[in-house]
Design a protein around this nucleic acid. Structure first.
Lengths: 249, 249
DNA sequence: CCGATTTACTGGCCTAGCCAGTAGCACCTG
DNA sequence: CAGGTGCTACTGGCTAGGCCAGTAAATCGG
C-alpha cells in the first residue's frame, strides 16, 4: 500500500492556481481584466493581504499586471519571454555551469536556427536580414561600439526567419545570457578590429547561404563564426568541445 | 532632449531585488537562512505584509522556501529547474505555437545532446545508458504502459552523458512539454506494438553509436527516431519541416 | 544519559484602516 | 455642439496590530 504526500496548499496558492488555470484554459484571455482586489477577496472569501499575495506571484510570473487607480482592475497579460529569460539566465549562472556549455548550447540553437531560416525564409525576411547586414558592415567600418548591437539585430533577423518561435526566443535569450555572462568578462583584446572583420566575413557567408537556401552552409558558417569569435579566449580542451558540434556539417 | 521613463519601484520590489542580488553575488548561499519576517520588517523599515509580499515572489521564483515554525527562518534554495520548466512550458503553450515548432526544437536538442554524449560519455555513463536500454527492451516485450517511462529514462541517461547541463535540462523539460502538449492529444493507434518495436530499434542504434563514440550516427538515429514516431500524425508539410533538420547528417 | 515537556518563536492569516493616484464622468466654456 | 477641465469614486500600495497552529530547541524529570 502506497500513500502519497498530500500537497498542503495555502490560501494564496489556491487563488493563484484557479486564476492560472483559467488563463491556461482560455477562459481568461490577454487584455481581459480581473476583478479588483476588494472584489476578489469577496469572491474567494479571504482577506485582502491574501489576495494581494496571490496577485504578487501572478505578477512575478508575468500572468497579470496591476494598474493602480484603474477601475477596470488587473490585466491579464499576453505571453512575454521575460520570465523565461530570467529563469534561463539563472540556470546558465549556476556555478557548476561552464562557459563551454553555454557556448555549445548557443551554437546548437543559432546554427539550427540559421538552417531553418535558409529554408523557411520569405523574401521579406531576406530583405530584413539584408538590411541588418548593411548596418553591420557600416558598424564594422566605423569600428565604434555599435558593432555588437548591429550583430545582435542581424542574428535576431535570422532567428525570426527560422519561423520557429521556440528557436527564435531561446536564441534571443541566449544571446543576452552570453552577453552578460561571457562577453562582459572577456578582456578587451588589442586586435578588436581584426575580430570585427572576421565576424563580418562569417556574417556575409551566412547571409549568402540563406539567400541561396543552403541550410547546411548557413549552419556551418554560424558555427565557425561563433567558434572563431571566442577561440582566443578558450583553452584547447574548450575549443575541442566546440569543434565537436561541427561534426557532419 | 530626451527623457526616459523613471522606473518607479514599489517597496516589495526593492526588497526582492536586494535579496536576489545578494544571492546572485554569492553573499547568500543555498542552505543559508534569512531573518524572520518580523526581523526583516525592522531591517527594511516596512510592514509585515510588505515583506511577506516580497517573500511570496521569491518563493514563486524558487529563490527561497518558507519553513513555518522554524526559528532559523526562510531558507535560500539551490537552483532547481522548476521555474525554468514552467516558463518553457508556458512558452510552448502559446497558441500561435505549432506542434512542428516544438518537435523541431526537441529534435535539435536531443540530436545534439546525443552527439555530445557520444563524445563525452564516460564508461559509467555508458553503463547507465545500457541499463536503461535493457529496461526499454523489457518494457517493449511486455508491451504494457511502461514503455513511455522507460524511454524517458533512456533519453535522460543520454542527456546526462552529454555533460552539458543546459542541453540536459532543456531536453528534459522539452520531453515533459511534448508529453503534455502533444503525446496526450494523439489518438491511440491500433498498431502501438509496431511503433514500439520501431522506437526500440532506433534506441538500439543510438546506443551503439554512443558506445562507438560515433556522434554523427547518434544524432542521425535520434532524429530519425523522433521523426518516425510522429510521422503518422503529421501532414506532409509538417513532415517536411522535420526532415529539414536531417540535412547534413 | 536520555526522553518528555515547555517555551519562545515561526509563518499564515485576518480586520481595519490611510494614502497617492487614475479613469471616466459630468460639467463647463468657447 | 465640440473640447478641454475639474470632480469623484474607485484603484492598488502600504501600515498597524493581532490571533492562530505549528515547530525547534532548550529545559526539565527520570
Amino acid at each position: 500500500m502506497e500513500f502519497q504526500a498530500i500537497g498542503r496548499q495555502s490560501a494564496h496558492e489556491a487563488i493563484v492556481e484557479q486564476i492560472e488555470r483559467a488563463v491556461d484554459d482560455g477562459r481568461l484571455r490577454p487584455g481581459d481584466r480581473l476583478p479588483s482586489e476588494r472584489r476578489l477577496m469577496e469572491q474567494f472569501g479571504v482577506s485582502r493581504p491574501t489576495v494581494r499575495e496571490a496577485m504578487r506571484v501572478l505578477q512575478a510570473t508575468g500572468v497579470v499586471a496591476a494598474h493602480p487607480g484603474d477601475p477596470r482592475g488587473p490585466e491579464i497579460l499576453a505571453y512575454s519571454p521575460a520570465v523565461f529569460e530570467k529563469s534561463l539566465t539563472r540556470l546558465a549562472g549556476v556555478d557548476t555551469m561552464s562557459r563551454v556549455e553555454i557556448l555549445q548550447f548557443r551554437i546548437v540553437i543559432e546554427a539550427n536556427g540559421s538552417l531553418l531560416a535558409a529554408h523557411n525564409r520569405t523574401d521579406d525576411d531576406l530583405r530584413d536580414i539584408r538590411a541588418a547586414h548593411r548596418e553591420l558592415r557600416a558598424a564594422a567600418d566605423r569600428a565604434d561600439g555599435g558593432f555588437g548591437a548591429a550583430a545582435d539585430s542581424f542574428q535576431a533577423a535570422i532567428r525570426r526567419a527560422s519561423h520557429n518561435q521556440l528557436v527564435a526566443v531561446t536564441g534571443g535569450v541566449l544571446a543576452g545570457v552570453v552577453r552578460t555572462l561571457i562577453d562582459r568578462r572577456l578582456a578587451d583584446e588589442p586586435d578588436v578590429r581584426r575580430r570585427l572583420r572576421a565576424s563580418e566575413g562569417y556574417a556575409t557567408a551566412v547571409l549568402d547561404a540563406i539567400a541561396d537556401r543552403d541550410g547546411r552552409a548557413a549552419a556551418r558558417e554560424v558555427t565557425l563564426g561563433i567558434r572563431a569569435y571566442y577561440a582566443g579566449h578558450l583553452d584547447p580542451d574548450e575549443r575541442n568541445q566546440l569543434a565537436l558540434l561541427a561534426e557532419g556539417t
